[in-house]
């Protein structure tokens, strides 16, 4: 008796918790509404199965708890019932899989007009690069990276000259304009994740990975690293500001290009200023203490 009641309360509690929880997803700020919808659908179907199974179990506890001499059914198999259950389950699963795959198909096919953003990760920080007027990013190489060339752009690549460099953990994006995030890492795995955008992908050293989304809500969002990357992992944050086209263009025009940087470095060298901005890699060094 008690047992059945307690189990019932647990199930009831779970359902109520789900309905009234103050902890739920953040307001979505990208085009991936479909992911949220599939989650909701899965909640309905899956949650329904969970509740049904548990209630059936509880019913059995009430109905068939031990009584000396109770008549028990002796029926090792029931082919028909098993068949019905198998097909019903298969159907339910298919209903969940289909939307999942459709959205995945959108996720891996990037729209043509997406703005490419090079997101470069290291232990433990981010920096960004946007294509310049030619609309193309220059090619890069890890071994090119040094104080004068923080992104490792191939100096001979004409596309690279006008690239816009954002040497900061923060970046601005234009509202309602799809972006293709191109991820690279110079050391270990990282993952550029903004919960409000719902999307993520690992940055893997040695290759360039990508994903895309279209921000659709103006505001500031926190970037989290979502792939373990050493002791500084939890502190590897950044930020995104989604702006209207006008504000975005103002911001964009204030950014430095690779060409500017080269010129600046030349003057610096000329003045033999040894206090030149060091590589960002040292910025977060304090997080890591030698054991």
């Amino acid at each position: 008796m008690h047992v059945g009641i307690i189990f019932f309360l647990i199930i009831l509690g779970s359902v109520l918790f789900h309905i009234f929880t103050p902890w739920y997803w953040t307001d979505i700020a990208s085009n991936w509404q479909g992911m949220d919808d599939t989650i909701t659908l899965t909640f309905w179907i899956g949650g329904g199965v969970f509740v049904a199974v548990c209630l059936f179990m509880i019913y059995c506890l009430f109905k068939f708890s031990y009584k000396e001499g109770r008549k028990v059914e002796y029926k090792p198999e029931d082919k028909k019932l098993e068949k019905i259950l198998t097909w019903a389950t298969t159907l339910g699963i298919a209903a969940l899989l289909a939307p999942g795959l459709i959205i995945w198909n959108q996720y891996v096919n990037v729209p043509k007009n997406a703005l490419e953003v090079d997101v470069m990760a290291w232990q433990w920080g981010w920096q960004y690069r946007l294509p310049g007027e030619d609309g193309k990013l220059g090619t890069t190489k890890v071994t090119n990276i040094n104080d004068e060339n923080p992104f490792g752009i191939n100096v001979d690549d004409p596309f690279g000259r006008d690239d816009i460099l954002v040497q900061s953990d923060y970046i601005n994006l234009e509202n309602n304009k799809p972006v293709k995030i191109l991820l690279r890492s110079v050391d270990v795995l990282h993952n550029w994740y903004v919960p409000q955008f719902r999307s993520k992908m690992d940055a893997v050293p040695g290759i360039v990975t990508f994903y895309w989304f279209e921000p659709n809500k103006i505001g500031e969002y926190e970037v989290l690293c979502a792939e373990y990357c050493g002791v500084g992992h939890y502190a590897m944050r950044g930020g995104v500001e989604v702006q209207s086209t006008k504000d975005y263009n103002v911001w964009l025009s204030e950014q430095e290009t690779f060409q500017d940087l080269i010129a600046k470095n030349e003057t610096l060298e000329f003045e033999d200023n040894k206090l030149a901005k060091n590589n960002n890699i040292n910025l977060k060094q304090d997080i890591y203490k030698e054991e």
Binding site: I10, M35, I39, T42, G47, L61, I93, Y107, S199, K200
Partner: peptide, 28 residues
């Protein structure tokens, strides 16, 4: 009985995570 409840619960959330695009916001 405890096993059935927890296993079914965990099995259902497994369907979230197995379903690629649902996994994207939830993974990690």
């Amino acid at each position: 009985l405890g096993f059935i409840v927890t296993f079914v619960n965990g099995g259902i959330t497994g369907i979230f995570l197995g379903n690629v695009s649902v996994d994207v916001p939830l993974s990690d």
